[in-house]
Design a protein around this nucleic acid. Structure first.
Lengths: 223, 223
DNA sequence: ATTTTAACTGAAAGTTTGGTCAGTAGTTGA
DNA sequence: TCAACTACTGACCAAACTTTCAGTTAAAAT
């Protein structure tokens, strides 16, 4: 449903932790992946213009010049980040719109898949916003989101045809479903002020949110 | 429901349009409001770090030094912007949680109010995200949102007690309702790529979205 | 061993941008 | 009409940030 490709797993792991490790011996691929990981998080926090190369370098433990060595410019690095996301993105699988699942199952699987992806990369939703707002989508309006959107509208239309989904606007409803799937993570930094005790990104909290979302949406659209 | 205070209306109007007007004669209040308007939009697009003072000055038609004259620093300007938003914010009125409305009416009014506010200031949702993600909410985690959130949980709890709302998690459901109300505007720049013909911010589109949201949410939570 | 290649570094150059300042010009009040 | 005040301006400075580069070290190739 959601899977990584390219860039070894180990590199991804090692760089996610902030502590400045002694850094591995010369390993081009690992270094690039580390830079990309740190860059992705920084870009997701501050956007293209707001991100500082020094900050990425500091987080990576690599010297600044390394970034230019591999990615030639800040923009080049940003492009590489967006490209990697695009290539990893395979959220709502093609199967969901096929006939193997019932409408209800397909909707539920879509929601579960969307929220699971959000839990895996809680910061990417913001990157997606940034890209459209700050850069007019010039660096890739990742087609993955589009696909999952149209997948949902298709399921909704089929549901209405079958009579299991009430009469509704598939376009707006798909937007609102996506909204439920993504808001939790986009607003996570805000929401934590509401109840600091609640661990919003814990596995149990995510599972509860998946159930709450499924219950809300399915009750909201069923005939 | 939603109302402005301070800063004259005319100033707000004149600066919203991008074309460089000849600028009015010396009018301290109007100039400040113009700067604040332009700053709010820029900050909402690029965040605190990503925004350039020169850009704000260019949009305002005022010279850069003017901004420092009135707001003393970029941070000061940002604070002023956040403060103005906080003072204008009066979204979900206190009445909604009172007994004058039925549960269903209160929920519908909350949704309508939230979306109407979003339509008025489509960019402010991003400012809200930025504030938490980039600045750890140090410049005001505008209490307005918090109030409307807890207002919704209260309504939901009352609804469950009355038996008109099904058994659900009020905390998560309130989050998801807020998600539906805000995603449409936050993602507006992304969504426009889906169907360029659709005018997402037109009055009719907004009204349709209000209806779609109300229908989805109420069907989703009613007993 | 020795040459070659590629990963890596520190420092400095070049550019952008936040912030200042001395001075100008309307406006108000005496 | 003159003085005092305040809005406003253009040029300039300093700090921050991006980008470059000459040089160093580890690994691979011969």
């Amino acid at each position: 449903m959601v899977q990584e490709k390219g860039y070894s797993v180990s590199s991804s792991d090692s760089s996610r932790q902030k502590s400045k490790k002694p850094r591995q011996a010369r390993d081009a691929e690992a270094t690039q992946a580390q830079i990309l990981d740190a860059a992705e998080e920084e870009f997701a926090r501050y956007g293209l213009a707001g991100t500082k190369i020094d900050e990425i370098a500091a987080r990576t433990g690599v010297v600044k010049a390394m970034i230019y060595y591999y990615f030639k410019s800040k923009e080049g690095l940003y492009q590489a980040v967006m490209q990697r996301i695009g290539s990893e993105l395979d959220i709502v699988s093609e199967q969901l719109v096929s006939d193997s699942l019932s409408i209800q199952e397909a909707i539920e699987a879509s929601i579960r898949s969307g929220i699971t992806y959000g839990a895996m990369y809680p910061h990417r939703g913001m990157l997606w916003f940034y890209e459209a707002i700050q850069n007019q989508g010039q660096y890739g309006q990742s087609s993955g989101w589009q696909k999952s959107f149209w997948g949902i509208t298709t399921i909704l239309e089929r549901g209405m045809a079958e009579g299991v989904v009430r009469s509704l606007d598939p376009f707006l409803t798909a937007i609102n479903i996506l909204g439920v799937c993504t808001f939790y993570f986009n607003a996570h930094e805000n929401l934590k002020y509401l109840d600091p005790a609640r661990q919003l990104l814990s596995a149990e909290a995510i599972e509860q949110q998946i159930q709450a979302a499924i219950d809300l949406i399915w009750a909201g659209i069923k005939a």
